[in-house]
Write a protein that binds this DNA or RNA. Structure first.
Length: 943
RNA sequence: GCUGAGGUAGGCCAACGGUGAGCCGCUUGUCUUAGGAACAAGUGCUUGCGGGUUCGACUCCCGCCCUCAGUACCA
């Protein structure tokens, strides 16, 4: 017993917390609330990896710290349990995915409890629970019932959508169609990855280089009717909302870039009969810039309307709807073939960086609106259908991509922006031999010559607007969210499709009534794909698939929602997890929201966080939540890498090659400078030594080796299993180590010896209070009821101050370092006042809760340490009566003197100059200047 | 290419413009209930490089190099 034994202590206290519901959170907060949230995990079959406890320990420390300071903390955990792996398992074994999901959740729960996190487990949610996804479906119906009023910039009920008179007069079906076209959840044809060999549709992450990840079968992109969410409507709101959030700048930047707002102009280029151009222009002057470009014009979007005079050709994307109209009979075959080719390529392939540009001339010409020049229209896949208008005006002189394309196909380059006079390549730019994308002075631009880029942009845009040929425009990179998946293990859509007597879809839809939610997943015989691109739910029995309401027959929607759906709103459900009447009780929502601290990996920087914000804003607009943003502060924990490895390289005949001479080709194959194949070998620590910047072989210092920590991965075999660490060192040691490795946000390599280091610290804490030598349990004889002496008191109060401030700012590594100093100090001390030990244990308890509970009870306390009050420090106790002050000579520290803490400038200077060492060093020199900072230092500038 | 983070001792990392904190490692002792020991003493950097500001720079400014992560034809 007397030795520190975490494997005995930790389960005992975990049971205590569970029995006593130590961390149960009240329904409504009393006093100051704090909502501390972890990104909930996907419960994979591999269990926790050491990256999970990093963020979870951080939030646990924050939560325990806040409770000790009297705040009311909501700190929940749950599982994002829909997803592909469970479905893959089901397909292979025939076992329902629910079964494996449940056993994975059980394992995760066991591991999380083993680490002593102070979650309120009664609030646990899983996205796969019917009680949960019932409300995921409900939120979908809110989206379905909402349209975006762009005037008011907010979502409103579909019933409030103004119906234009021409549609109203066309009848009920037209009105319904119009509504459907405006809902935030709508259907559209989108491309899916269909793999004929596997007979299934694949998720993007299951496709690599146009082939299925499993089996390497070719994947075709085919259009399929999909559910989309109109997130683009919220672009501006999502962008603005970022301003007030306490998020890392990097993450904000990522979201901004993802939304990708740009401003410029839309411009129509005339493509009709050449004789008709004047009439067309006149019409435009009269009508203004129309909503649609019409038959006779090709509309483009540009951020550089100032370069319009340099537009020497145009490009449309291979999917552009006007291709048929543009293509001439001579070019017909070439264009069709090109477009066909493009349709096989994924977006990925089409946008891969160093690929040479390709394209085909359509045979048609357009008229440049500013100079009436005829310019050719091409089709090329470097123009994307989904952005802007899917067509561009190409200005090769001032756009890198257009320049490359123009050189490839010998198209004209006309410079219209003169770079600053001191530009090193000005000559080549003006000759059209080099591309220049920055701002400058307009040339070759008629009336605009001599003006600066910004001014020309504005003037060209307004002049086009006057003539009805252009308009100021804003564009976003953000696309609408493809929201349906052809999968079994996901939330079914609460939507019914009307079928006629012949069993054909009529195109009319109906939302499942709220009281009929949840729509459950059907029972299937097996989970194997049925070989058609429809979702697996289409295999369900007619009992599930067909519904009759008011004598009309409906077929259920058979797509399921993507995994993002459940994770979009789980933070709300934790607040009211058992509510069967509503998604959340408004009073509770108001009391707990927003999330005060959200911690998780940076891999969710864009998608999860953007999707959640979008849903939250819709719920906000519709009055279901009270805050405009869900997550106030966000922190991304850094990645934990494997142990540092030394890697040497050898050729086939086993001779060593210096790491500096090893080349890696595109496939990752290694070769030496001379072209020989080399292989990497792992070296042990004692085979290498430090030399200069890097490491070399001890046996041959000419041979350099790589020293680097790699990502943990099964294939590399460097994965650290938390179960083993807990068994070997204890949960407190694991928690403490992960916090001590370095700053939370940093990427850090794992080092098992470091875990031993913090374990030694915990051992020292134990021995500071417990007599480890005795056979029975006995407190350490050095403990005393005497008060602290001055030094001890100062150590205590300085530790309280440092740990309080560092914990508050989440600088856990330095807080721990300070607690180590405290322990070293008192371990050396023969007398250890209990009045110092107790507050120290409270300081340490958020970090190492089990050990602290145990020692706390040994000190005679009967209630949990979690119920105590965080100690405060006394400023007066911090100051020393006398302090050491360094003496610098010419800025270099030469010696130190001891003076009273409040010594005046003069006294310090006198003492310094009187010091023997200083005297000798000043011998024969004159003091040019003396700087005395009271309480800090003395600097003597001498000659 | 772009964006972000970073470069301090053999490793991990602290340091309001003012003394290198802490942990691991290493060396040598001591002690022992032989442990993941403990204790004691010791060990170490041109703070990535080059300039500048300053009495004084890891810290502020300018230029460069390197590493890691993410991202990439969005007109």
């Amino acid at each position: 017993m007397p030795r520190y034994n975490p494997s005995e202590i930790e389960p005992r206290w975990q049971a205590y917390w569970e029995e006593n519901k130590t961390f149960a959170t009240p329904a409504l907060p009393s006093g100051k609330k704090r909502y501390v949230l972890d990104m909930f995990p996907y419960p994979s079959g591999d269990g926790l990896h050491v990256g999970h406890p990093e963020g979870y320990t951080a939030t646990d420390i924050v939560s325990r710290f806040a409770r000790l300071r009297g705040e009311c903390v909501l700190h929940p955990m749950g599982f994002d349990a829909f997803g592909l792996p469970a479905e893959e398992h089901a397909i292979k074994t025939g076992e329902h995915p629910r079964i494996q999901t449940q056993s994975n959740i059980d394992n995760f729960t066991r591991q999380l409890k083993m680490l002593g996190f102070s979650y309120d487990w009664d609030r646990m949610v899983s996205t796969t629970d019917e009680d949960y996804f019932r409300w995921t479906q409900w939120i979908f119906l809110v989206l379905y019932d909402t349209w975006f009023d762009s005037e008011a910039q907010r979502g409103r009920a579909i019933a409030e959508l103004p119906i234009p008179s021409e549609i109203a007069s066309a009848g009920e079906a037209a009105i319904e169609q119009y509504r459907d076209a405006n809902r935030l959840a709508y259907q559209d044809d989108a491309l899916v990855n269909w793999c004929p060999a596997l007979g299934t549709v694949l998720a993007n992450e299951e496709v690599q280089d146009g082939k299925s990840e499993r089996g390497g079968h070719p994947v075709k992109r085919i259009p399929l009717r999909q559910w989309m969410l109109r997130i683009t409507s919220y672009s501006e709101r999502l962008l603005e909302g970022l301003d007030d959030l306490n998020w890392p700048v990097g993450i904000k930047k990522l979201q901004q870039d993802w939304i990708g707002r740009s401003t410029g102009a839309e411009v129509d280029f005339y493509i009709g009969e050449s004789a008709g151009i004047d009439r067309w222009k006149a019409t435009r002057v009269e009508s203004g810039f129309p909503q649609e470009a019409g038959e006779d014009a090709l509309r483009v979007y540009t951020t550089r309307p100032d370069t319009l005079f340099g537009a020497t050709y145009m490009v449309v994307s291979p999917e552009h709807p006007m291709i048929e109209r543009l293509v001439t009979s001579e070019q017909g075959e070439a264009v069709r073939e090109y477009c066909e080719q493009a349709s096989f390529k994924s977006d990925r392939e089409r946008t891969e960086g160093d690929r040479a540009k390709t394209g085909v001339f359509t045979g048609s010409y357009a008229v440049n609106p500013v100079n009436r020049k005829l310019i050719p229209v091409w089709v090329a896949d470097y123009v994307l259908a989904g952005y802007g208008t899917g067509a561009i005006m190409a200005v090769p002189a001032h756009d890198d991509r257009d320049f490359e394309f123009a050189k490839q196909y010998a198209l004209e380059v006309v410079p219209v922006v003169d770079p600053p006079a001191d530009h090193p390549q000005r000559g080549e730019i003006l000759a059209g031999d080099v591309c220049f994308v920055a701002q400058g002075t307009a040339i070759n631009s008629g009336e605009f010559d001599g003006k600066q880029t910004d001014e020309v942009k504005a003037s060209v845009t307004s002049s086009l607007a006057e003539q009805g040929q252009g308009n100021h425009a804003v564009n976003y990179k953000l696309r609408d969210w493809l929201f349906s998946r052809q999968r079994f293990w996901g939330e079914p859509f609460p939507i019914l499709h009307e079928v006629d007597d012949a069993g054909e879809l009529t195109g009319r839809k109906r939302a499942v009534a709220v009281e009929d939610l949840p729509v459950q997943l059907p029972e299937l015989e097996d989970f194997k794909p049925h070989g058609r691109p429809e979702p697996p739910l289409a295999k369900a029995d007619d009992d599930w698939l067909y519904v009759t309401i008011d004598e009309k027959r409906y077929r259920r929607e058979t797509n399921t929602m993507p995994q993002w759906a459940g994770s979009c709103w789980y933070y709300l459900r934790y607040i009211d997890p058992k509510n069967s009447d509503a998604m959340i009780d408004p009073a509770k929502e108001k009391a707990w929201m927003p999330v005060d601290l959200y911690v998780g990996g940076a891999e969710h920087a864009v998608l999860h966080l953007l999707y959640s914000r979008f849903w939250h804003k819709v719920l906000f607009d519709r009055g279901h939540v009270s805050t405009p943003e869900p997550f106030n502060a966000l922190i991304n924990q850094g990645m934990i890498l494997g142990e540092v490895e030394f890697t040497g390289y050898v050729t086939e005949d086993n001779s060593a090659v210096s790491a500096a001479d090893v080349r890696r080709d595109a496939e990752g194959n290694l070769s030496s400078k001379t072209g020989q194949t080399v292989t990497a070998v792992v070296l042990s620590d004692d085979a290498v030594e430090k030399k200069g910047e890097g490491f070399v072989l001890q046996s041959d210092p000419q041979i350099r080796v790589d020293s680097r920590a790699h990502k943990m991965s099964k294939s590399r075999g460097n994965v650290v299993n938390p179960d083993e660490v807990v068994r070997e060192y204890g949960a407190d040691a694991l928690r403490l180590y992960e916090m001590f490795m370095g700053p939370l946000e940093a990427t850090k390599p794992w080092a098992m010896t470091g875990v031993g280091g913090v374990r030694n610290f915990l051992d020292r804490v134990w021995r500071m209070i417990v007599d480890a030598k005795s056979d029975e349990f006995k407190l350490n004889a050095s403990l005393t009821d005497q008060p602290c002496d001055e030094d001890q008191n100062r150590m205590l109060h300085r530790t309280i101050k440092k740990v309080t401030e560092d914990t508050d700012s989440m600088s856990f590594n330095t807080a721990i370092a300070r607690m180590m100093e405290f322990t070293n100090f008192f371990t050396r001390s023969e007398s250890r006042p209990i009045s110092a030990m107790k507050p120290f244990l409270i300081l340490l308890s958020p970090y190492a809760p089990h050990l602290c509970e145990e020692l706390w009870s040994h000190l005679g306390e009967s209630d949990s340490i979690a119920a105590q009050t965080w100690p405060s420090w006394d400023e007066a106790a911090l100051v020393e009566s006398s302090i050491e002050v360094p003496i610098q000579i010419n800025g270099k520290v030469k010696t130190k003197i001891r003076v009273a803490a409040d010594a005046s400038k003069e006294t310090i200077a006198e003492t310094a100059l009187a010091d023997d060492k200083v005297k000798t060093m000043l011998d024969g020199k004159t003091i040019v200047k003396q700087i005395v900072v009271p309480g800090r230092l003395v600097n003597l500038v001498v000659k």
